[in-house]
C-alpha cells in the first residue's frame, strides 16, 4: 500500500523540508541583503564628516558676517538647473526663515551667485548670474571703470559698455559697483578673461570667468 504512493510520499517529504528550509533561507537572504557593507559605512562616515566640516565653516562665517549684509542666512542648494553653468537654483529656505524676494545670494567665500526671484514658505528660487536676464552694474576693481554684467555667453559672463580707452587687462577682478538696486558694493563676481571690441562700437566688452564655484555649489548665504 505504502509502496503504491512512494512517489507522493517522497514528494511530500521533499516539499515539507523544502518549505521549511525556504522559510529559513529567505529570512537569511533578507538579512544579508539589508546588511550594510563596511565600504558603505566608510562612505557615509566620510560624507557626514565632510558635511560637518562645511557646516561648521558656514556657521563661523555667518556668525562673523564679514559681508555687507544686515541679515544673513545660510541655505542648502536642493536643485540646480541646468546641472552645468546653472541659470537657476533652488534652496531649502523660504519665507518662514526670513527669506524675501530680491535678496542677494553669495557663495560661502563671498562670491556673487545671484538673486532670489521667488519664495515659498520653505524654498526659494534663485536666478544666478548665468541667467540670460542678468543685468548688474559692476566695476573693475583696479581701474574702477563701470560696466553692465550680462549672463548670455556661457560659460563666461560679459561686462559690456566699458570705455574704449579702458585700462582693463586680463586677470582684473570684477566686483559689484553698488549702483544696482539690490546688490551691495564690493561683492566679487569674477576675473577678466579677455577683452574684445566690436567694429563701429564705442565700448569694450570684457569676458569674465566667474569666481564662485558653481560646480561645487552645496550651501549658499542669502543676505540683504
Amino acid at each position: 500500500m505504502i509502496w503504491r504512493f512512494r512517489r507522493e510520499l517522497a514528494f511530500l517529504l521533499c516539499l515539507l523540508t523544502g518549505l521549511s528550509l525556504l522559510k529559513v533561507g529567505w529570512k537569511a537572504k533578507l538579512i544579508s541583503s539589508k546588511r550594510v557593507r563596511p565600504s558603505e559605512i566608510r562612505y557615509n562616515y566620510e560624507e557626514l564628516f565632510r558635511e560637518n566640516q562645511r557646516l561648521r565653516r558656514l556657521l563661523r562665517l555667518q556668525e562673523k558676517n564679514t559681508f555687507p549684509f544686515s541679515f544673513l542666512g545660510a541655505a542648502e542648494v536642493i536643485k540646480i538647473q541646468p546641472a552645468v553653468w546653472p541659470g537657476q537654483i533652488t534652496v531649502n529656505k523660504g519665507s518662514l526663515d526670513g527669506i524675501r524676494e530680491n535678496m542677494v545670494v553669495i557663495s560661502p567665500e563671498g562670491r556673487l551667485i545671484g538673486r532670489v526671484i521667488d519664495v515659498t514658505e520653505t524654498t526659494a528660487t534663485v536666478f544666478t548670474i548665468f541667467h540670460p536676464s542678468t543685468k548688474i552694474s559692476v566695476m573693475l576693481q583696479s581701474s574702477r571703470e563701470i560696466g553692465i554684467l550680462e549672463g548670455i555667453s556661457l560659460p563666461y559672463l560679459l561686462v559690456r559698455y566699458l570705455p574704449r580707452d579702458s585700462q582693463a587687462k586680463p586677470g582684473d577682478l570684477v566686483v559689484t559697483s553698488g549702483l544696482s538696486e539690490f546688490y551691495p558694493k564690493g561683492l566679487t563676481v569674477g576675473r577678466v578673461f579677455r577683452l574684445t571690441s566690436e567694429k563701429n562700437q564705442y565700448f569694450l566688452t570684457a569676458w569674465i570667468r566667474p569666481e564662485a564655484g558653481f560646480a561645487q555649489l552645496e550651501e549658499v548665504f542669502i543676505g540683504r
Binding site: L15, T17, G18, G25, K29
Partner: peptide, 9 residues
C-alpha cells in the same frame, strides 16, 4: 548563493 531551498523545491 541563492535562497536556500528554492531550487530544491
Amino acid at each position: 548563493r541563492g535562497v536556500i531551498g528554492w531550487n530544491g523545491l
